[in-house]
């Protein structure tokens, strides 16, 4: 019976401890900087256009082929009287969040630091009624960064803490 008593005492000791419940939908725990939700595109606030040039690097590297990228000539390029140094720029971009497996490879292969994993709660709470709604277009992908609502973390492969 000693063991049963010990077991009862164990539960009694947890009874007196503070509950560990996180009141999830009401209280969101702070997410770490590196948190990985779904990828989104970043907005170059200085020139007011996306960083993405539509180079297809991420599309090719994606293991699950969830991206579709189309590029166009940049109408804002210097040669045509604009302010941008980007000759090509993203025209259309779709990411199927339903298929994305959040492996971070697209971020690593991007040469322009134009794509990042969403590290805010908006990136996690994506439930929709129809799978179709998880295919996000360019506007949707850029919206959060354009509004400045994200402090992105773009990891560099093999980067150390020096």
């Amino acid at each position: 019976m000693k063991g049963i008593a010990r077991s009862l005492m164990t539960t009694l000791s947890t009874f007196s401890r503070k509950p560990v419940t996180r009141d999830y939908p009401n209280v969101h725990k702070p997410l770490p900087e590196r948190d990985r939700a779904f990828p989104l595109l970043l907005w170059d606030q200085d020139i007011d256009e996306p960083f993405c040039t539509g180079c297809h690097a991420c599309e090719r590297a994606c293991p699950v082929e969830c991206m579709t990228v189309l590029m166009k000539d940049n109408p804002n390029h210097k040669t045509v009287g604009g302010t941008s140094t980007r000759r090509k720029i993203i025209d259309k971009f779709w990411i199927d969040y339903a298929r994305c497996m959040r492996c971070n490879i697209c971020v690593e292969v991007c040469n322009f630091d134009a794509i990042a994993m969403n590290n805010t709660w908006t990136g996690h709470e994506m439930s929709v009624h129809d799978r179709k709604d998880l295919v996000i277009d360019l506007q949707g992908l850029l919206a959060q960064s354009r509004a400045g609502a994200i402090k992105e973390w773009v990891p560099v492969l093999g980067q150390t803490n020096e």
């Binding site: 994993m117 990891p155 980067q159």
Partner: peptide
């Protein structure tokens, strides 16, 4: 960065520090 599907080890080392 992820809770279950880490994708953190890379051939050669680690993805980041």
């Amino acid at each position: 960065g992820d809770r279950m599907m880490y994708a953190y080890f890379r051939p050669g080392g680690l993805a980041w520090d």
